[in-house]
Design a protein around this nucleic acid. Structure first.
Lengths: 392, 392
DNA sequence: GCAATAGTTAGTCAGCTTGCCTAACAATCA
DNA sequence: TGATTGTTAGGCAAGCTGACTAACTATTGC
């Protein structure tokens, strides 16, 4: 239920200013007339609202109309340099590495770096803080205007305990690490599961765009699931453990196969499956990529079919619980499998359950976790600006 | 994101009146001073707001304070007779039957009936419309003031197609049946899955009260799941199919046991399991009730342990996908199993997965579906009243 | 024991402030 | 000339503050 808002004419003013800023952020550059149409406010009020936003440095004139009759209308936009967002992706490769980027209020990426990081030698918060300072200096952005840092980690964040769980990167399981980073940089720091952030990117840049929600199945070394409930709201679970589908049981304990989904479609299981089919298996993704590239080889086809059948078990479980409008296959393995794997899983799903949930391959070619972190940070920055106007 | 509200002083007035009505509905009887504290409005404005609400018949004076110094303050409450809600539960027993109840704006049940219904002879919408008229006449409530009818059906409602799917009650699978009922009674009619409504009742009257959300596993002849995301928001899925956990696959197709959860813990499977343990099995619930009542019998204990292990598989799948703060066992079987079954499932879950989701038995002794339908209808009525004030 | 009085609270009234709207107008461009 | 932009002036709606009356309790004085 909507907040029970009550107040005086002052409230009206803040609401109108805030609503106008939201329109500028969401719909891009607008003339006074456009804004009038969106808000329903009168001409003088629209002028007054824009005057205030401009005074506060939140809106700027970016041009003038031309061609039509009458004076050239001023075109207003949210000031791109009013605030910045930083996205960070902490990776758990052979060597832990950091990817980070900074963008302005319009989402334009101003700087991006990737570095190896020895979290054994340097404390995690020190390392990240230093890297963010370097990033901002290089991009020419004022650190003081960074209003949100969104970190993505390979693990689940428990907001109740304030701890990152199930994370293998050294130093990142320490409690309070975010608070320290936040205090060091004097900015709001939030953490989220990397798969969740990949789903954010999928909504903005990939096949999740415009959907009513989707379930993103992350197939990589590990196994994960992100649940977009529509409109970008993510289901995280009581302890941030929603989507830990590696734990979905497969069969009763008496079964001969792996007892859970991780044992069936986790990276090592996929490698083992490839080897069992006589295929080379550097990594799971390599094996799948090689197989999709050589479909003439019967072993490759059989491997993919067997893999698809296993994935379909997971998708069927997810679909039965959630009935998502769409299931997205992502992660290195999902990406490597491409349309071939997607079609194979679709076919396998038909034979597994009566549900016919559409399946798609990820549409994000770039680093989904980093892009998602950036977008998530940007949304927080925008919300903070709007809310700051609402409660002055 | 909150609606981008913009407008003039008229908007302010409607917002304040509407917020005040919401407080009256949620917090019960209030004096002017109480309302002032909640809304932050001034004394004259509070008076004006209450004057309007009273004029519109939405609020009434229900008493006066006494004991303190000064004049006796008037105590206002939402007018219980301003609007009514009707809840209907369509049951699929040997003979299809209808349970329905009507309540006033405070939630007080004014009338309740249960009837067998021959949907073969009489069209479903005719039968329900007639029953609702009788119900209201018997309860002395004006049918014109019934602002919402919430129907619960054993099936899933697809809002896109406007059809109830997977329903075995004759006549209820016809498209447009709700529209016809709505037009006949001139009231807003909504349908929902019976298990979803049981979850609504669980939140209001049962162990779901005050929780951050829960997953309600419905064990009866069929098998179902309702997902409360917190605050009473239910996850329904793209085609209303969320929670169809009967379709969760159990094992690959090679497995020797039932290929999905329905084959494992559906009513017939439970009966078969009881028989295999040499126990009588009139219905699944009877078998479970009998077993919990005779724990000294080793066969009964073995039966319950085997059943708990199967249920734990389903709970583990749900917990891995959703990580709910709580899992509630409900339905005839869940209720019959009581604390014994709950403890057995908890123990079995420990051996199945590393997740330790708390499990509880339903706390709703009465007809959960009917109570949930009533409560859901009541919420719609309240929302309708508040929204009607907001946009005059 | 009773009445007068002081103190507190409920609710209303008057005057003021804020903010938005309508209508009119000057300026600009095809 | 006609359409459109943006501003100005005047008016209206709604809420707020502060003052005031009325009502009720508690205490004091006799």
């Amino acid at each position: 239920m909507v907040a029970r808002l009550a107040g005086s004419s002052k409230l009206l003013r803040t609401m109108n200013v805030s609503a106008s800023l939201e329109y500028l952020l969401d719909r891009g550059p607008l003339t006074r007339a456009d804004l009038r149409g969106l808000t329903g406010l009168s001409k003088p009020t629209t002028s007054e609202v824009l005057r205030r936003l401009t005074e506060d440095g939140l809106a700027v004139v970016v041009g003038r109309t031309s061609g039509g009759p009458g004076p050239q209308a001023e075109i207003y936009a949210a000031n791109p340099t009013a605030a910045y967002a930083v996205g960070v992706s902490v990776r758990e490769t052979r060597v832990p590495s950091l990817a980070m980027a900074v963008c302005d209020l319009t989402g334009t990426v101003l700087g991006r770096v990737e570095t190896a990081a020895d979290f054994g030698r340097q404390a995690a918060d020190d390392a990240v803080a230093a890297a963010i300072r370097d990033l901002c200096a290089g991009a020419g952005t004022d650190l003081a205007r960074v209003r949100a840092v969104q970190v993505g980690v390979p693990g689940s964040y428990d907001p109740v305990a304030g701890v990152i769980r199930h994370i293998d990167v050294p130093g990142w399981d320490a409690p309070g690490i975010l608070d320290r980073l936040g205090r060091r940089l004097d900015v709001a720091v939030t953490v989220d599961n990397d798969v969740n952030l990949a789903a954010v990117a999928e909504r903005r840049h990939g096949v999740g765009h415009g959907t009513d929600g989707f379930a993103l199945v992350w197939l990589s070394f590990g196994l994960g699931l992100a649940i977009d409930l529509g409109g970008g709201r993510l289901l995280r679970g009581a302890r941030g453990g929603a989507g830990e589908i590696g734990y979905v049981p497969v069969g009763l304990r008496t079964s001969e196969i792996g007892t859970d989904l991780h044992g069936l479609v986790g990276g090592q299981a996929v490698q083992a499956l490839a080897r069992a089919h006589g295929l080379p298996a550097g990594t799971a993704a390599d094996a799948v990529a090689a197989a999709t590239g050589s479909l003439a080889d019967p072993a490759a086809g059989a491997f993919l079919a067997a893999l698809a059948e296993r994935i379909a078990v997971g998708v069927a479980a997810v679909a039965a619980v959630l009935d998502p409008p769409l299931v997205v296959l992502a992660g290195e393995v999902g990406q490597a499998g491409g349309d071939v794997l997607r079609d194979a899983v679709t076919a396998a799903l038909r034979t597994t359950t009566p549900l016919d949930t559409p399946i798609a391959t990820t549409g994000v070619a770039d680093d989904a976790v980093l892009l998602g972190a950036l977008d998530s940070g940007l949304r927080q920055v925008r919300r903070a600006l709007v809310d700051a106007l609402r409660t002055p």
